[in-house]
């Protein structure tokens, strides 16, 4: 057993690198993309040196956006597979967690079933973002080289691209809030923002299954 003040590693350096570099990409591409999305965001254009510049920045960061997870996948393929395996492992505890979560979100005190290293909500997040990223990259490539694809596919790509970034950004709002300012989720902030470690006592309470696996049953 470890002392409650001790901290255990939740997110590896590689995971944090991919997470934060992708965060930067997401926001740069979100704002440059908004300029290309609608005339409403014309006021944002000067930030990128005009709509032309926004187009350039968007495409430039698209390369990073695609390259970063591919590098991660190349360097540590196993940890990606492990992560995905865990994200797709759904049992009664996961479903109960999601059923009870809306109450916790509002602020009622609920007893949550024990969770793994990532809880059911984080599992959804872990499935959603790689999936959205994949379809954003795919539709974006079609949009970039629109001349080389059939018209209907380009038209479809516009819809897919917009749906993906809209769903993704909506999820970013939840994700950023739940990972920082939501009471009780606070410690998970340091899993990503700090050295990747969380307090053991917190882990025991919030990620019981994982805690028992790492530290051992008391």
């Amino acid at each position: 057993m470890v002392k409650s003040e001790e901290r255990i590693l939740k997110c590896s350096g590689g995971a944090r690198f991919v997470h934060w570099s992708h965060t930067i990409c997401w926001f740069v591409m979100l704002f440059s993309g908004l300029v290309l999305f609608s005339g409403w965001f014309k006021w944002l254009a000067p930030v990128f040196g005009g709509a032309d510049g926004a187009d350039f920045i968007h495409k430039l960061f698209a390369i990073f956006f695609i390259a970063i997870p591919l590098i991660g996948l190349f360097v540590k393929p196993r940890s990606f597979i492990e992560w995905m395996k865990m994200a797709f492992r759904w049992g009664k505890d996961e479903f109960m967690f999601m059923m009870k979560f809306p109450l916790d979100f509002i602020g009622f005190k609920v007893d949550m079933p024990p969770q793994e290293r990532i809880n059911a909500g984080q599992k959804i997040n872990s499935i959603l973002f790689p999936l959205l990223g994949f379809f954003l990259a795919l539709s974006g490539t079609i949009m970039w080289f629109a001349d080389n694809f059939p018209v209907w596919l380009v038209q479809l790509a516009y819809i897919v691209h917009d749906c993906c970034w809209i769903i993704g950004t909506a999820q970013v709002c939840f994700h950023a809030y739940l990972g920082s300012l939501h009471p009780g989720s606070g410690e998970s902030f340091w899993a990503m923002f700090g050295d990747g470690k969380v307090r053991a006592s917190w882990a025991k309470h919030h990620h019981t299954k994982w805690y028992e696996e790492v530290v051992g049953r008391e």
Binding site: D162, I166, L181
Partner: peptide, 26 residues
């Protein structure tokens, strides 16, 4: 998609802000 889609972002942002206050109140 273009005119109505982005409201989803406003919805989750508003939900998060709501939760920020309601969790603290409750």
């Amino acid at each position: 998609v273009k005119p109505y889609g982005p409201w989803l972002i406003a919805l989750t942002a508003a939900g998060s802000i709501l939760s920020f206050f309601s969790t603290r109140l409750l």
